[in-house]
Design a protein around this nucleic acid. Structure first.
Lengths: 294, 294
DNA sequence: GGTGGCGTTCGGAAATTCCGAACGGGCGTG
DNA sequence: CACGCCCGTTCGGAATTTCCGAACGCCACC
């Protein structure tokens, strides 16, 4: 009995989802079917691919080696289908306007390099919650959001009603900035306590950077509603307060000297690709997933 | 319904064997199963892969494109299995002593380059018919023989009792040689008629080079039994007659001037890999087949 | 016109895949 | 310590896929 692609597809899903149960959901199969396929594959190869633990399936060394092959084979099978069948794969990708102009081109470039046959239609949105609702409802195949932590919503926003699968595809560094003449500019080793009473420019309550600022700085500073990233940057340049902003949004201002970084490190956010785990067989979506992987 | 490797295996066999019927034999399946799998694959991809002709199956453009992918996927699937399962594949390869020292190292080098995990045990033999009988009986997975033409036995030897599949992997140039002082040495544009009455050194009646000489020169020359290639070369050097020998066996003698090539071209023989078409799933044999392909 | 070789269709058998229910093991919590 | 939850697995049976063998139609050749 030879190895078959559907077995590798199942195997890869189990590795990615880490449990038979979650992989079964993603594959629209019963857990017993997934378990049976993994067992059949192990018999076929004559090796154990997973260590069964109470928390789920952990790949063995052989499993790790097979994973490389499995992804390659599945990827090439899709490429073969695309070339032979000539069917374009199209994915609607939602992204906040903030990152639509910055990180999305990078993701698309990587995708174009690895999957020339896949068309991605970028759908800018203004609300993370709306984007995730669209993914859950099937109006988007995937979306890019900013988040942190091990679970979706780790940054503090509510988790979407539909359970979505996600993958961190990039880090989004943050910088705490102020006008060059600000009293804290130039001081070393700042802590959140140093910012108690400072004016902190923020976006609306659900804005990722505001949520990040809440986590990093706590309740000490005074929140000053400012609007989108460009507005916050501009107000910070004019000395109206400090702001926690994505590094890409302030790099040039800092280089030109109109802004100064404060010496208080903030953990980077994650650029997170989210999609419905039970719709991975949508043409092209898996391509996006493969392309997004490091 | 996604593409599966067993479908690609069937597809590749049909391309290689050119008919559903022969592919079915090779795969140990009924022709109707093969036909059904090809149809299912075509439905899955939404394209026609073959043009059905009375003489067999002819790949379409899409079929040609898929073939490249199919071979790649099947090859990588085997490599994946070899790496993950750690099971060495071993093939017993028969070869006449004549070519065991000359062409076989080249084939093995190519194999080592393309299939590091495959072990080939070379079994030298003295009789082509015995080698093919061993392949037919399963004592050898494959053998290298010298032949010509479109069918096995085209050189003139009897076809083996078991129908064997074959693949030409290299050309084996021939040279008609004589001692440097031979009257025909140096004359241009020789024809077989010029050799009427000449002494022609030959091996035993089933020797490939004798069969080749019979085809090239006809009955005109007088056959002088001489023995194996080295013996024929030596006698030719001593002016005891002309001989039709493999180029590799006379290159150095010609270069050192102890032999002269006569200006009568002889078509090259083919180094032909033979195996049982119904045992291609033997571990490692397909690797040898892929490696042998140009 | 008859024959042979080819691929395909068809009905049915065999094999594979899958489902849902039930189970056992391990872990976390009260 | 007992209970509940989550995990993977086993089991019997259903659904689907693959395969077989017989029969057929088409085409080329003699």
């Amino acid at each position: 009995m030879a190895v078959e692609l559907h077995q590798l597809r199942t195997f890869e899903a189990v590795v990615r989802h880490r449990t038979v149960t979650d992989a079964a959901v993603a594959l629209d199969r019963a857990p017993s079917s997934v378990s049976a396929q993994i067992r059949a594959l192990e018999r076929s190869l004559g090796v154990s691919l997973f260590e069964r633990t109470p928390a789920g399936m952990r790949p063995t060394g052989a499993g790790e080696r097979l994973l490389v092959w499995a992804r390659r084979l599945l990827d090439q099978a899709e490429q073969a289908r695309a070339e032979v069948a000539g069917r374009p794969r199209q994915v609607r990708l939602g992204a906040l306007e903030t990152i639509a102009a910055t990180y999305v081109p990078r993701v698309l470039a990587r995708l174009a390099e690895r999957r020339p046959g896949v068309e991605v239609e970028v759908r800018p949105g203004v609300s993370r919650d709306d984007l995730m609702a669209d993914v859950g409802a099937g109006r988007l195949e995937a979306a890019l959001v900013l988040d942190t932590g091990d679970a979706l919503g780790g940054l503090g926003f509510p988790a979407p009603p539909e359970p979505l699968t996600f993958l961190d595809v990039d880090a989004v560094p943050l910088a705490l900035v102020a006008a060059p003449g600000h009293p804290l500019a130039g001081r070393d080793g700042l802590t959140p306590a140093d910012l108690a009473g400072e004016r902190l420019l923020v976006g609306d309550p659900n804005c990722s950077f505001r949520l990040a600022a809440d986590r990093v700085l706590g309740p000490g500073p005074e929140r000053v509603p400012a609007g989108a990233v460009p507005v916050m940057r501009s107000w910070a340049e004019h000395g109206l307060g400090v702001a926690l902003l994505p590094e890409f949004g302030v790099t040039s201002a800092c280089e030109s000297g109109t802004l100064a970084r404060l010496d208080l490190p903030a953990p980077a956010l994650s650029l997170r690709l989210v999609w419905r785990g039970d719709r991975e067989d949508v043409p092209g979506l898996r391509d996006v997933l493969y392309a997004a992987c490091a």
